[in-house]
């Protein structure tokens, strides 16, 4: 039953040949197919990972850009506000200066007008007084007539002064 003969050499050769043939016709193609598939899956996974990374990077970039734009916008708003405040204070200062100038001009003008009125009044009073004196001297005047003349002259003087005042006020 248990006998070892030279057919064992055949069996060893047979099995070695079988190993080689099975490797060539079965294991090699199947392992290659399995490897190709797993390689393909790995490639797909790595390309998905790459796309994900790229998307993340783009997202980050956009976020940074958005942040920068917002920051720039804030700076611009701040600068504009500062500029506006500067312009506002400039305009107000200018207005004050102009106001002061106008005020001064008008004050000076008023002062000179008053001076003019006073000098004109002075002249008028002198004229009236002179006229009064000449009239008094030229007539023999009763006291009642004298009073009448003086009243008349004074009224005339007042009317003249009022007229002068109105003219200067209008100017």
């Amino acid at each position: 039953m248990i006998s070892i003969d030279r057919s064992i050499i055949f069996q060893i050769i047979n099995f070695v040949v079988l190993v080689m043939l099975l490797f060539r016709f079965l294991f090699k193609p199947v392992v290659k197919a399995l490897d190709n598939r797993s390689q393909h899956i790995q490639d797909e996974l790595s390309s998905i990972e790459k796309a994900q990374q790229k998307a993340d990077e783009t997202k980050k970039k956009y976020e940074e850009e958005s942040k920068m734009i917002h920051q720039k916008y804030q700076e611009m708003v701040e600068t504009a506000n500062q500029e506006a405040a500067k312009i506002k204070s400039g305009i107000i200062d200018e207005a004050y200066r102009e106001g002061e100038k106008i005020k001064q001009t008008h004050e000076e003008k008023a002062r000179s007008e008053i001076q003019k009125i006073f000098s004109s009044l002075k002249t008028d009073i002198i004229d009236i007084s002179t006229e009064m004196a000449s009239k008094i001297l030229s007539h023999s005047i009763t006291p009642s007539i004298q009073d009448e003349i003086i009243d008349k002259m004074l009224d005339e003087a007042i009317i003249r002064i009022e007229a002068q005042m109105e003219v200067s006020h209008e100017q």
């Binding site: 030279r6 047979n14 079988l18 099975l22 016709f25």
Partner: peptide
């Protein structure tokens, strides 16, 4: 070397396996 019934059976089994492998792959 003696070609026994076992050797012939081995060849047949080998042949069947190799043909099946070629057809399968």
């Amino acid at each position: 070397l003696p070609v026994t019934k076992t050797v012939v059976s081995t060849w047949l089994v080998m042949g069947a396996l190799i043909i099946a492998s070629i057809l399968a792959t």
